[in-house]
Amino acid sequence: MTTGTTPATTRGTAPVGYQYVVLRCVPEVQREEFVNVGVVVYSQAADYLEAAWRLDEDRLRAFAPTLDLGAVGASLDTVCRVCRGETGGGLPSLGGLGRRFGWLSAPRSTVVQPGPVHGGLTTDPAGTLQALLDRLVG
Rank of each mutant, 00 (worst) to 15 (best):
49 L>A: 12
49 L>G: 11
49 L>V: 13
50 E>A: 14
51 A>H: 12
53 W>K: 07
54 R>D: 12
54 R>K: 13
55 L>S: 11
56 D>W: 10
56 D>R: 12
58 D>F: 11
58 D>V: 14
58 D>N: 13
59 R>Y: 12
63 F>G: 12
63 F>C: 11
64 A>E: 00
65 P>H: 06
66 T>L: 14
66 T>Q: 14
67 L>I: 11
69 L>G: 12
70 G>A: 12
72 V>I: 11
72 V>G: 08
72 V>M: 05
76 L>I: 05
77 D>I: 09
79 V>A: 09
79 V>E: 05
81 R>I: 04
81 R>T: 06
81 R>Q: 10
81 R>P: 02
82 V>I: 11
83 C>R: 05
83 C>T: 02
84 R>S: 01
85 G>D: 00
91 L>T: 07
92 P>N: 04
92 P>V: 06
93 S>W: 02
94 L>K: 01
95 G>F: 02
96 G>D: 11
96 G>Q: 03
97 L>K: 06
98 G>M: 05
99 R>A: 15
99 R>C: 12
101 F>C: 04
103 W>V: 08
104 L>R: 07
105 S>N: 07
105 S>T: 03
105 S>V: 05
107 P>C: 03
108 R>P: 05
109 S>R: 15
110 T>I: 10
111 V>I: 15
111 V>M: 14
111 V>K: 13
112 V>R: 02
115 G>K: 07
117 V>A: 15
118 H>Q: 13
119 G>V: 04
119 G>W: 02
120 G>D: 05
121 L>H: 14
123 T>Y: 12
125 P>A: 07
127 G>T: 12
128 T>W: 00
128 T>G: 01
128 T>H: 03
129 L>G: 00
129 L>N: 00
